[in-house]
Design a protein around this nucleic acid. Structure first.
Length: 902
RNA sequence: GGGCGGAUAGCUCAGUAGGUUAGAGCGCCUCCCUUACAAGGAGGAGGUCAUGGGUUCGAGUCCCGUUCCGCCCACCA
């Protein structure tokens, strides 16, 4: 049996890499993936996914593994459905993250980027990208990602850069991009602006500092003020109170002195101030607080910036100039205490804005930046989802999306970095006018002067990612790819970047292409450790997907991620789960070995028409049921549930029952053996196809062996059209319409199963040695004939001796010297007189009888009530039959109890 | 301050057409190296589906309230 030449344990490490190479070389990842078919068929609707581009310098983590598993699943499924399928891969330049990495490298050499200058620095980054940029894509291949690498893109590629320019200029020309002085979030460490989304707020224990603002006209009187950031006192330009606040009415319009600095600032009235909070008086620092800035605008206050780009105090801070913001806080407070300006300190929980990258504390800062006027874009994006042109799965994120879109603020898109798309704006040194252009200009568009210089800033990375679904296909050119593959189909990613990325793609897609960039958004959850903790290096609970793949194989990891998750819900991953799925891959492998072995030894194709056994029919019916279920589940994006059902079918029906029975049928030889092999092949083949999107490697590998074995056997086993040259491009199995016989065969087989289980159960209970065959009498009424045909199977699987198995329609006498069982109304007697403990038997039978009677009365009540009239006839009938069976069972149990008493 | 998710077996979780005896994996107990697989096979123990109400012939599943856990959004010094 050549099937047994395959290794006994599935050896993924020998299989995965060559298989992936083969797929790629054969061109299966391309949309026209069958090498035997013509190259382009525009009449087919394509299925397209753009990869969420990982950071070019990133390293594989479970988030990547998750999206690859999900997207590759969808891609492989649609490919097998025969659709032209394209998965566009690529990477993101990831401005901040990458620049930070390179700057850190420089720091090791004692260098800062300013010392190198822009050109030289960018050269370094590109060199870095060339060196490490391939790592992540290699790792993604390792996961089995079947993307079309010939179409790989990078956000800083020439084509994509052109798209970015085009987008910027179009928005600018429409008046949707503007430059202005605004309060933005400033990252002192990176010395750049960041967007609202890049700031995370954390509740932290802090202090509320109370101090005195002394009145200029009455040095003995002061107005008490509280702040969480004393250093900002240096930039105060007013103290505000609520106009309704009677405590302070007399102060309004008078002046106070800024502590230490001695500047005179006014006390003003503004209804923004909450009289109930703190002291009811608010210090106003327009340059360092967004609310204060608004107040300043209303009252025309002076705006004093007291901090440098690195959040040190500048010359406006007088004696504190040069100090770091937190040093200053300490020093200033001490000085104020010495000057008797301190009232008290109170512990206070403050909401600290921190950078998403690195966690440093963000400073609100007034500065000149570029913004996208987002409202018009957001409105269109809102419409697209409201009108169902884009569907978000799971549905609950739709609300979150609405909420964000409805309250969206203008998007700060300029970054004071060097690594990224430089803003295509030039300033004239002579007339000062701006030139915004698609191509680098040589002169000022307004005055014609050649003395122009480009804006120093680059664009937010997400600006280019927002164009990803169409920029990767060639936009703004009307390339064949763009025309055919755009819009894409499904956008799949983690819910954590719904706003960062998904929302922006929708806005940009609608704005620039006039179409929704995809019709469906599928969001997966975050991956946590086995107890739901976030994975982090400090906690030491990080699972490295590469490690997992090395240990258990790619299929095991993929299957775990897919089956262990439901849309939008976080998944708690543990190695135990992966291990269980590695075992599954091994199970599949071994079932395959068995089937291939069966093929090798089975007789040639018969002339006669097939005669199916109950088991054959049953497994076929169950397979059809599975195909229907999987189809339904895939349609509704319930991939995890689909995987689970395939798993269950494969293991507990196909392997546990059909294969066991197949051994008996094969042993009969002749036509029976052939048709058994035929069924084995059919079912295994279908399972491999169904599993392929989940576990591509073990299925492809096994399928190749199976195909070979089947083809060398007979045309019947391997009809040409069914067996493509690779599983990856083989057809997805379609279910047959349900047929009448299916229900009956399923029912009958369930009976056989229950009888076998009942006997096995009693064997274990009575501690019958496994090898010992026992006698049994089955009394089955109308089912006797059907069961008689299954007697071999019952005997073999239940450990009953074939000679001593009787299957009767009825039996006049019952002896007390038998163990009596009832399964589905069928009686089973095991004459094991020496093993019978009469008391225990009576107790057991009585317990079973009680259970049956309880069910009977429950069902009687149910069927006598309104249920019978109101519930659908089918459901009622089902319950009626159940009641019948229980009555039957109860009657048999009573017989047996009586027999026991004789 | 708003909004969302979770609460099901010792652990981690499925259960998304409401159908009446609630499932899996791991762990646990008994037995078995049976010629695909010990990464396996057979049998078993274990759950008042967080809680209180409601809708319905019927609720783990739908509606309302409560408690605990987690998350997102929001400019309160």
């Amino acid at each position: 049996m050549s099937g047994y030449n395959l290794p006994k344990t599935y050896d993924f490490s020998a299989i995965e890499e060559p298989l992936y190479k083969w797929w790629e070389e054969r061109g299966y990842f391309k949309p026209w993936n069958d090498p035997n078919l013509p190259n382009f068929d525009p009449s087919h609707k394509p299925f397209v996914i753009s990869i969420p581009p990982p950071n070019v310098t990133g390293e594989l983590h479970l988030g990547h593994a998750m999206f690859v598993a999900m997207e590759d699943l969808m891609i492989r499924y649609h490919r097998m459905k025969g659709e032209p399928t394209l998965w566009v891969p690529g990477t993101d330049h990831a401005g901040i993250a990458t620049q930070l990495l390179v700057e850190r490298e420089l720091a090791k050499e004692g260098l800062r980027r300013e010392q190198l200058g822009r050109e030289a620095f960018l050269k370094r980054v590109w060199a870095w990208k060339e060196k490490y940029g391939g790592i992540i894509t290699r790792q993604i291949r390792r996961l089995g990602a079947s993307c079309d690498w010939s179409r790989e893109r990078f956000t800083l590629d020439e084509g994509l850069s052109r798209a970015v320019r085009e987008a910027f200029v179009r928005l600018y020309e429409k008046g949707l991009i503007y430059r202005g002085l605004r309060m933005i979030n400033w990252s002192p460490g990176l010395r750049t602006a960041v967007s609202d989304l890049e700031v995370e707020y954390s509740e932290e224990p802090g202090t509320l500092y109370y101090f005195k603002y002394v009145l200029d006209d009455d040095p003995n009187t002061y107005i008490p003020v509280a702040t969480t950031r004393p250093e900002t006192i240096l930039g105060d330009t007013a103290v505000a109170v609520n106009p309704q606040d009677e405590r302070y009415t007399s102060f309004i319009g008078r002046k106070v002195r800024v502590p230490i600095l001695g500047r005179l600032i006014p006390i003003i009235a503004d209804s923004y101030v909450d009289p109930g909070f703190g002291t009811g008086a608010l210090k106003v620092t327009p340059a360092h607080d967004p609310n204060d800035y608004q107040i300043a605008l209303r009252h025309n206050l002076e705006i004093i910036n007291i901090m440098t780009e690195e959040a040190r105090i500048n010359e406006a801070g007088g004696p504190y100039a040069g100090l770091d913001r937190f040093e200053c806080r300490k020093k200033l407070w001490e000085d104020m205490r010495a000057a008797d300006l301190v009232i008290k300190e109170e512990p206070y929980t403050i909401t600290v804005p921190r950078s998403q990258r690195g966690g440093e504390i963000i400073e609100p800062r007034l500065s000149e930046q570029w913004f996208v006027r987002i409202k018009p874009l957001a409105d269109a994006a809102l419409q697209a989802v409201r009108e169902g042109r884009i569907r978000i799965i799971p549905d609950r994120f739709t609300k979150i999306y609405y909420n964000w879109m409805e309250n969206i603020q203008d998007w700060c898109i300029s970054r004071q970095l060097w690594w990224g798309h430089r803003i295509p704006v030039w300033y004239c040194d002579d007339c000062g006018a701006m030139t915004v252009a698609r191509e680098d200009p040589t002169s000022c568009a307004t005055c014609g002067s050649p003395h122009i210089h480009q804006d120093e800033d680059v664009l937010d990375t997400w600006f280019s990612s927002g164009l990803w679904p169409f920029s990767t296909l060639g936009w703004p050119e009307e390339t064949p790819d763009y025309k055919y593959f755009y819009p894409t189909s499904v956008l799949e990613t983690g819910y954590d970047i719904l706003f960062f990325w998904v929302a922006r793609m929708i806005m940009f897609g609608l704005e620039f292409t006039g179409r929704e960039p995809f019709h469906t958004v599928y969001l997966h959850g975050l991956i946590r450790d086995e107890h739901g903790q976030k994975m982090s290096k400090t906690k030491g609970n990080v699972i490295d997907p590469l490690e997992v793949m090395n240990q258990m194989g790619t299929d095991a990891l993929r299957f775990t991620l897919l089956v262990g998750s439901t849309p939008g819900n976080d998944i708690n991953l543990s190695l135990k789960k992966v291990e269980a799925n590695r075992n599954f891959a091994n199970k599949v492998w071994n079932a395959g070995r068995f089937v291939i072995g069966a093929l090798d030894s089975c007789p040639p194709a018969p002339q006669s028409s097939p005669q199916w056994t109950l088991a054959d029919s049953w497994i076929w019916a169950r397979l059809q049921n599975l195909l229907r279920e999987v189809e339904r589940l895939f349609e509704s994006y319930q991939f995890g549930e689909a995987g689970r059902q395939i798993y269950d079918f494969f293991w507990s029906e196909f392997a546990d029952w059909y294969i066991e029975i197949a051994k008996l049928q094969l042993a009969q030889g002749g036509d029976r053996a052939f048709y058994t092999a035929y069924t084995l092949v059919r079912v295994l083949d279908a399972c491999l196809r169904l599993l392929h999107p989940f576990t591509p490697f073990v299925t492809e590998s096994l399928w190749g062996h199976l195909k070979q074995a089947a083809q060398s056997k007979s045309e019947l086993l391997a009809p040409k059209e069914g067996w493509a040259e690779a599983l990856i491009i083989a057809r997805w199995p379609e279910p047959h319409p349900p047929e009448d016989w299916e229900e009956e065969k399923t029912e009958h087989f369930a009976m056989v199963q229950d009888i076998i289980r009942a006997i096995r159960n009693v064997r274990t209970e009575k501690k019958v040695p496994p090898a010992r065959k026992i006698p049994a009498v089955i009394v089955a009424g109308d089912h006797a004939e059907m069961l008689y045909e299954q007697s071999q199977i019952i005997a073999a699987l239940a450990g009953v001796s074939t000679e001593e198995l009787q299957i009767l329609k009825d039996r006049a006498t019952r002896s007390g010297n038998e163990i009596a069982l009832v399964a589905r109304g069928i009686e089973i007697y095991i004459p094991l007189a020496n093993l019978i403990d009469f008391e225990a038997e009576r107790a057991r039978l009585q317990k079973e009888l009680a259970e049956a009677e309880q069910q009977i009365s429950r069902l009687e009540v149910l069927l006598a009530g309104p249920f019978a009239e109101r519930a659908p006839a089918q459901i009622v009938e089902k319950e009626r039959q159940k009641l019948e069976t229980f009555r039957e069972t109860a009657a048999r149990l009573r017989d047996q109890l009586r027999a026991l008493d004789q």
